[in-house]
Amino acid sequence: MGNINKWLKTNTFHHSSFSDVASIVEEKQKQKLKVSLCIPTLNEEATIGKEIIILKSELMNLQPLLDEIVVIDSGSEDNTTEIAASFGADVYLSKDILPELGEKKGKGENLWKAIYQLEGDIIVYIDADIKNIHPRFVYGLVAPLIFNPTIKYVKAFYDRPLAFSQGIRPSGGGRVTEILIRPLFSLFFPELTAIIQPLSGEYAVRREVLEKIPFPIGYGVETSHLIDVFSLYGLEAFAQTDLDKRVHRNQDTRSLGKMAFRILQTFLFRMGRVGIIDKIPKMTNILRQFQAHDNYFEEVLFEINEEERPPMLKVPQYRKKRKLPQRKKSTEK
């Protein structure tokens, strides 16, 4: 798909292209845009203070790129909300926003309520467990929206090779992405495979898009966003920025299983909604993965034919060898 490689060239950025934060702020002010940062939390006391201090100091006090920093908490039992408030974030409990609509537990719920609570024309979401927080996590995602009006949704990815002797190296996402999402997208939404890390929790989106799409309340939210925004606007509405390295907690395989389950629920539900669950289309046999070639990314196509063999009882040679009566031709289908 030439479209994917073209998109990879024009809509894939590296955060270093946007390190002149003053120029982003200037353009933001010219367009009279408001930018809000939303950090959804649940028991993140180890890292939340650091995220707020760094982003508030660098992107509110020194350069006014952000107009507000808001923490939306799902009911932490540790000191997350106290720490966040003490370092100057606006802190809300998810259940206190739109209380008449009830309370649902999950990250997606907080992201959805942020649209109601926050003021920004652009909302940046970042996860609260980033250990190596740096202003690039925000400006790298906001800048493409500010400089390019056709871009509506900017997703983070992380690719920092320490040393590679050859020019080509494999690239891509984590285990759930490579084992579940990419094969699913390859089969049903091949263009979306261009998003190198579809599950990354850091993205910046225009309000006009966020208010039009539904939000699964749990881990399915990122996958559903990609499918829904793609259905509404096509691949051109997306961009992605390489933010180098992200250090965070590693999840155990059991948690990844739960994540995969929720994602599958969301995915199949969407398949149903677009009317392909009952009549699965002819499936492609191309798996799309990624590699980085020096400084640019390209897709690698693998033709995979998972052919099937019939039950051995249906094989005449086998029946003959085992001295079984030969089946009639009509039943061998």
Binding site: K50, I53, I54, K56, S57, N61, N132
Partner: peptide, 13 residues
């Protein structure tokens, strides 16, 4: 204080 603490974290890491 915020600017100082942000510098502390960025330098310290």
């Amino acid at each position: 204080n915020e600017i100082l603490l942000a510098n502390l974290i960025m330098i310290g890491e």
